[in-house]
Design a protein around this nucleic acid. Structure first.
Lengths: 353, 353
DNA sequence: CTGAAAGCGCTTACAG
DNA sequence: CTGAAAGCGCTTACAG
């Protein structure tokens, strides 16, 4: 036992202040919350004493009484990552704006991994630890969807980052993945590329990736070019998975001149695989990504990619959730995307030709 | 008003379970917490009903009664960043392990920016929202130190990432910055570099940077090389600041052949400034960084830097804080660093010469 | 092994 | 404008 724990200060309560101010505890409570019922002089006196005693309202008592927590839970999917971060860098880039938006709204932000508890669907709101939940990421969408349905059944307040789809439960905030896939493919077509490959899932287990694939496919069709189904290779969003998938692709297809990766992490692995196979990017082959993660401007060559506005995303996630908590109806939101042209697509080389 | 809010489910309480199980509410409480006092059959019955009703213990009530929150507050300094992330990437890389370590210990993690509230030094523990605080980052250490002293005075439980120093308040977990500065400079000396510059603060406003500088300086001295005081240029940890400082350096000193940057972010700006000035890295000049942030392996050329074990750091931060909360004495911890050799130092070129 | 009761520190309806 | 009282949903000392 340390010295400290024996000497532990006991925190002041509203009764202590009431005693010192010569008023009732109810008046203290009202004064501190700036109730119009309380005389200004009384307020001033109470506040002065509170300040002096370093008094802070006990959140547990206050929350219990008011049956709310003024807290948002942010649940992150624990991703497999190359480094020790455990979190997809794209989500990491939203964290600042989510934190800021929560604070500005007067809400605390609780952060946790989704898979640390089987009960994450109930853990937060049912215990009154949080008034609502923000969900970032998932492993397999099909499994995830079941959990979402449970959340909805239990009338939990939640919003999630991801693909908007009428069949999917809950309110989603996401970018227009179809358009992103279309636009960046169109960009490659404009650059003269003809034989495309897509690295990443293209089925319902990863609906964002799937929408990107559909946009990609439709841009190719519209240009009257050929689609080779064998040139779509599954990958999860990691460098390693992108590397392996690209190795597989290159072993089977020798004429590919452009690879669209479903994420920047995949693209980093894909570039490495191309280079290890003796291909020069972008001269022999274009490689582009999706997400515009911080690393993407530093890869060699710098990665052409699709940017999603993470700052706005964070704000929308928070504001939508708060609306939901307030009992308002909230529509899913679809944000615009932007193609970021750098070197890996071959834009500069070809543009100047 | 939406349909939902009218139909709001009312959560089950321990009294509901007691009623259904035909026992007292105290017994329900004991059974749910697996008290050895309760008969196994009673426990089973109570637990079954709780599961069925989707019952969860109300945290506010439980915390209020127990006068603890089982929550840790993580306070991040809001950094100026080039993108919208607002958080230094080095701290971001600790987030996963902190989150994980907290969850494993049964603690919730509250996350907030330090500067969102003037009162952050009291906001969390005094309100019983958190049992203790983890501090990551700061702007100016001198200002920060005052806040730390206040925290200590109020007997708040806190740990911080940073330089251990007997004069600094509180328990710190950090890496051996002196050694890191020494080792990477020694590495450059081994490579044949002779005229050094240091970009970053070297005074008490940034003690980690200062320790790195001292290590740097002592390595140069030990090798019998000259130290040019004008070759230390102030910079905060951003790419832009690193860029500007390096521009200033290059305008005044033409013979520098190696730059040690106090952080990777600074180094990224420094490399850009060198390249913009027509210098080739590492042929004309070596540039090395500190932190081994995710981006550092992708810069062009890849950045030689000093790695700090962020995964272990997160775990130590959490475990130290929990010890403090439990009234144990906790010693500051100093972790070892490791030089990560990549291309920007010129190792491969020179090694092979 | 179980129950009745107190109490954690607030907010707020009720009464004046 | 102010106060006395109830009650939010638990945990735990006390009594049996």
């Amino acid at each position: 036992m340390s010295f400290e724990s024996t000497l532990m200060r006991s925190k002041a309560t509203s009764f202590d202040i009431a005693h010192l101010a010569g008023v009732s505890q109810s008046t203290v409570s009202r004064a501190l919350r700036d109730s119009p019922l309380v005389n200004q002089e009384t307020k001033d006196k109470v506040k002065a004493i509170a300040r002096e005693l370093n008094y802070k309202v006990d959140k547990n008592a206050s929350n219990l009484r008011q049956q709310q927590s003024r807290t948002i839970a942010l649940l992150l999917f624990e991703d497999p990552t190359t480094d020790d971060s455990l979190i997809n860098p794209f989500f990491l880039s939203m964290l600042g704006s989510i934190t800021k938006a929560s604070a500005l709204a007067g809400y605390d932000l609780l952060i946790s991994f989704q898979n640390m508890s089987d009960d994450w669907h109930a853990e937060f709101e049912d215990t009154n630890k949080a008034d609502g939940i923000i969900l970032l990421g998932y492993g397999d969408f099909v499994d995830y969807q079941n959990k979402l349905s449970q959340l909805e059944e239990q009338q939990t307040h939640f919003v999630r980052w991801g693909a908007a789809d009428k069949d999917h439960p809950g309110v989603s905030i996401g970018c227009d993945n179809y358009q992103g896939g279309f636009d960046i493919t169109q960009h490659l077509i404009n650059l003269g590329r003809k034989n495309f490959a897509f690295i990443g899932g293209a089925d319902k287990h990863a609906p964002e990736f799937q929408a990107r694939y559909f946009g990609h496919r439709d841009a190719i069709k519209k240009a009257g070019l050929k689609i080779n189904k064998n040139n779509q290779v599954e990958a999860i969003s990691t460098e390693n998975s992108g590397y392996e998938a690209t190795k597989t692709l290159l072993a089977n297809s020798t004429d590919v001149d452009a690879i669209l990766c479903a994420s920047d992490l995949i693209a980093i692995g894909a570039m490495q695989a191309c280079q290890d196979s003796g291909l020069t990017i972008p001269n022999d082959i274009s490689v582009v990504g999706y997400d515009n993660i911080p690393v993407s401007r530093f890869t060699n060559p710098a990665l052409t990619t699709v940017a999603q506005n993470t700052s706005l995303a964070g704000e929308l996630l928070v504001s939508s959730l708060l609306s939901l908590i307030n009992g308002e109806d909230v529509a899913p939101k679809l944000m615009q995307v932007e193609v970021i042209t750098r070197q890996s697509c071959g834009a500069s080389a070809i543009d100047q030709a």
